[in-house]
């Protein structure tokens, strides 16, 4: 093998047939570091309406409700992927989400 002049992603012989990728493998790429503001949820105000979950372009919100405990009735953002667009805060009918500046 000749040494690549730039950082090649894979050797020719290691490429998958047809230059394909595994489903959902963008999960390997954390987009969270794009964020300059972070959504913070006030769980007191949250009514578990799911609008943050519906309207997140990056699908980062997860329903934490365990089916029993009302205290788990909220949605949690996955900061590994949240890009900080602020749609969740904008659309939250109870204004339970605030966008806060990321600390560097």
């Amino acid at each position: 093998m000749t040494k690549p002049t730039i950082d090649a992603l894979a050797k020719v012989g290691d490429l998958p047939l047809g230059f394909t990728a595994k489903p959902g493998s963008t999960m390997d790429f954390k987009t969270g570091d794009w964020r300059s503001v972070r959504p913070i949820l006030d769980r007191e105000k949250c009514i578990h309406c799911a609008f943050c979950y519906y309207y997140c372009p990056d699908g980062v919100y997860k329903d934490m409700y365990d089916g029993k405990d009302d205290a788990t009735k909220y949605f949690q953002a996955d900061y590994d992927y949240c890009k900080g667009c602020g749609i969740c805060a904008q659309e939250c009918p109870k204004k339970a989400i605030t966008m806060t500046l990321e600390e560097v």
Partner: peptide
């Protein structure tokens, strides 16, 4: 599977060479 991906400069050459091989 996903077919027809974007080949950046880091892998385009390899993808072409694989087809040539």
């Amino acid at each position: 599977i996903s077919i027809g991906l974007l080949g950046a400069p880091e892998c385009y050459t390899e993808a072409r060479k694989a087809t040539d091989n």
